[in-house]
Design a binder for these strands. Structure first.
Lengths: 148, 148
DNA sequence: CTAAATTTGATTGAGTACAATTTAATTATA
DNA sequence: TATAATTAAATTGTACTCAATCAAATTTAG
């Protein structure tokens, strides 16, 4: 009888969830970034936003949202903060005044140098074989692509 | 020259990050829960908290924090909310007044029935082969265990 | 052309997350 | 046994996340 109950409720057992370790691991890894990025005065969200801008130079809020899977309610304050710190500027597109372009400044590009050591340090915290890391990467993007 | 620059900064490219899809996929999956759990009047954090209590009946805040990788700053308001809704009660342990025990109520246990359909619906949103899901589960716990 | 629909970003509100601090209770030690 | 150290939760402050809503600009249809 108790065994039957156990079976009935097994899908609601924390240890049988796939999403819970996804949620927990994500938070733990972001926590690792927190310490490292604190030295740069950045949060993780600010860091990934700059990653896009370091590569692209100038990107609209909409495009940033698409790349980072974030909406304007999250991005607007993040961009304001980066702007205040002088790492980016925000200006409306002359062609279409609805669009706000975020553009990395010289000061923002300088921060890229300081950030170069971050990925290696993070990799050091995550104890996975190279093959496991690749498999994880592939599966995570498969999940993300499945939502499109 | 430009190629050299590209190589130099490749570790800071968003597409070369392992942590970014972890962070993004986690948020997307929690987003799927949001819709489902809304019908139960629960948030994801409340849901995983109840998962522990459904199985254990009664758990201290400290133990909950350990199981869920959350601290009291997060758990206290979550437990207050579950208490207000009548799904749990909170009472100090007579043996050690520092400890607060959260105990699921009858009403809380009834919610377990309604929640039974949730895991299946979530599984339907995540387009992975069974083998991939198992591998993901294993790797995520390997990451989590690596932090202990 | 002009009103309706759409697009873009900002704002607001509720709910996390987590570091740091505080308070109360307990345990260890001189 | 005092008191110092430790432990458990709660509180505070900062920041993120997203749903819902709003306002302005642009596009589309009639």
């Amino acid at each position: 009888m108790y065994e039957k109950e156990d079976k009935k409720y097994a899908p609601l057992s924390l240890k049988n969830q796939l999403c819970f370790p996804l949620y927990a691991a994500s938070r733990r890894v972001i926590g690792q970034y927190r310490t490292l990025l604190d030295e740069l005065g950045l949060t993780y969200t600010q860091y990934v936003t700059l990653m896009v801008l370091w590569e692209e130079g100038s990107v609209s809020v909409k495009e940033l949202g698409h790349r980072l899977f974030l909406d304007s309610g999250t991005l607007t304050p993040v961009l304001k903060s980066l702007d205040t710190k002088g790492y980016i500027v925000r200006e409306r597109c002359p062609d279409d005044e609805r669009i706000v372009m975020a553009t990395v400044t010289e000061k923002g590009m300088e921060l890229r140098e300081k950030a170069l050591s971050v990925p290696g340090k993070i990799a050091g915290c995550i104890c996975l074989e190279a093959e496991e890391a690749h498999e994880l990467y592939r599966i995570l993007y498969k999940i993300l692509d499945g939502f499109e």
